Amino acid sequence: MILNLLKEFVEIYHLNRGLGELEYTSENLHVEKPDLSGQLEEFYQHLNFDEEAYFRGAPYDLALFPLSSCEAAAEGWQDQGWKETYVVFAHLMGDEVIFCDLESDLSPVYGRIPGDSKLYALSPSLSTFLTTYMLMKKLEITQFENNIYIDEDLLDYKEGFLEGIMDIIEEQLPEDYRNDFIAFMLG
């Protein structure tokens, strides 16, 4: 299941005209991090990119870290609440980090905001997070043609956009993750 998801995720990335190279491969890429496991390991085994890969378009710009940058990305976040099983794999453009907890093979996804000690529970699994994000971008691309704002001030959304995003979140995420996802991803 995650392989089909990753393939579609990369297709949406290219439809979004993402910045940076991001390729899907059905072959297992060599992963040089021995303690990587679960869905996050599959993510890095089947997505090929050497530099950050950026999805375009506010309000939830997402940048994926190549595996070689994950440890450096975690620096500065490792306070007393940080676990050794956390692996940063992405960030939002405001420097909010997104990471998985490798204690579970599902690789549950969390987020942290600079200056905020709150741990935002974004998704019970990496696949659920990627699906939700991909469907949000797909809505933006296909129904709104990458133009979700009423005007150039980027303050108000076109009619139906937020409702569509909320429908996706309600459909994809368990109830106990929705508020944190909305607060973190949509600010």
Rank of each mutant, 00 (worst) to 15 (best):
K138F: 02
Y24W: 10
K7A: 09
I150L: 14
A74W: 00
M166V: 03
G38N: 04
L62S: 03
Y24D: 08
D101T: 07
L64V: 02
S123W: 02
A90K: 04
Q172F: 08
G38F: 04
S123K: 03
G164A: 11
F55R: 04
K33M: 12
V97W: 01
N28W: 06
G160W: 09
A73E: 08
T142H: 09
L173K: 11
V109Q: 04
E75L: 13
E163R: 12
P59L: 06
V88K: 02
F89T: 06
K138P: 00
E140A: 14
S69I: 00
F184A: 00
Y133R: 12
T25L: 02
L47A: 06
G76V: 07
L5M: 12
E159D: 15
E140H: 09
E32N: 15
D95I: 01
F89K: 02
L36V: 08
Y86E: 00
F99S: 03
D167V: 07
S68Y: 00
Y24R: 07
N179I: 00
E163Q: 15
E163W: 07
M93S: 13
K33L: 14
F99M: 07
E75T: 10
L67K: 06
D151N: 15
L186S: 03
N28Y: 13
Q45T: 09
E103K: 09
I169Q: 11
T132S: 11
Y86C: 00
E75W: 05
F161Q: 10
G18R: 05
D176T: 05
S37W: 00
E27A: 12
Y149S: 06
I148W: 05
K138T: 07
W77L: 08
K137M: 13
F99R: 02
E71K: 13
F89D: 02
I165N: 06
D105G: 11
K138S: 12
L139T: 12
M185R: 06
F161R: 10
I168C: 07
I165G: 07
N179S: 11
Y54W: 15
A58W: 09
T142G: 00
I169F: 10
W82V: 03
F184K: 00
N179R: 07
N146V: 01
D101W: 06
C100L: 01
I165T: 08
N179Q: 12
G81W: 01
E21A: 07
D50F: 05
D180S: 05
G164C: 13
K158D: 01
C100D: 01
I113T: 12
E8H: 14
P114A: 10
A73R: 06
L29A: 05
G164Q: 13
D153I: 01
L29K: 15
A53T: 08
H30R: 12
L36F: 12
R56L: 14
F55S: 05
W82F: 15
G187N: 14
K33G: 00
T85V: 04
S107T: 11
I148C: 05
L6N: 10
L135E: 15
Y133T: 08
W77Y: 04
T132L: 11
G111D: 02
A63H: 09
F43D: 03
I2C: 06
E171C: 13
F49V: 01
F89Q: 02
G187F: 13
E171F: 10
G115M: 09
W82P: 05
P124N: 13
D151Y: 11
Q45N: 06
